[in-house]
Amino acid sequence: MSVKIKDVTQKNWREVEKLRVGENQRAFIEPNSYSLAQSCFEPEWKSVALYCDNLLVGYAMYGMEKTKGNVWIDRFMIDKDFQGKGYGSQCIKALINHVKNIYNCNEIRLSTHLNNKFAQKFYEKVGFKINGEIDSNEQVMIIKNI
């Protein structure tokens, strides 16, 4: 499976906006339209489209927070039609490497809703660990020494 991370542009933003998580996941992540707008008005956040074998399967937003300089994967989602097929695991690994290379960092943060045990286990499988911090009612997870 070949993963490509591409900028969200005028050519693909409408397709990215149409990506959806399952009904039972909607309470855990902002709609892509919100995140796309956020990355337009807050330039420290970068929106990217996630492709596997040239098929758009997901969306992510990452960046470095202004105040503390921490690097975050602030959004990560795989469309409901592509979940459970290995796309998520491949895309998150590629995204971690992508973000690491851009910021030349050795640690990346993300946060998960306290009730989203599936996401917590998913991120733990690729090396993230809960660090005990809470960010906007979500638990912070960190991957280090990447």
Rank of each mutant, 00 (worst) to 15 (best):
M1H: 05
S2Q: 08
V3A: 11
K4A: 10
K6L: 14
D7I: 09
V8W: 10
T9L: 01
Q10D: 13
N12T: 09
L19T: 11
G22F: 04
E23P: 02
A27T: 07
S33V: 12
S33F: 07
Y34C: 10
S35G: 07
S35I: 07
P43S: 03
E44F: 15
W45R: 01
S47D: 11
A49Q: 10
A49I: 05
Y51H: 10
C52P: 00
N54E: 13
L55I: 15
G58D: 12
A60F: 03
Y62N: 00
M64K: 15
E65A: 14
N70G: 11
I73S: 03
F76H: 12
I78V: 13
D79S: 15
K80Q: 14
D81W: 10
G84T: 02
K85R: 11
K85L: 08
S89D: 15
C91D: 03
C91M: 07
I92Y: 08
A94T: 06
L95F: 07
N97T: 09
V99R: 00
N101W: 00
C105F: 00
N106M: 13
E107P: 06
I108P: 03
I108R: 10
L110G: 14
H113M: 08
N115H: 09
Q120Y: 08
K121L: 07
K121G: 03
E124S: 05
V126D: 07
G127K: 03
I130F: 14
N131D: 15
N131V: 00
G132M: 02
G132W: 06
N137E: 05
N137G: 06
Q139R: 14
V140K: 02
V140N: 03
M141N: 01
K144N: 05
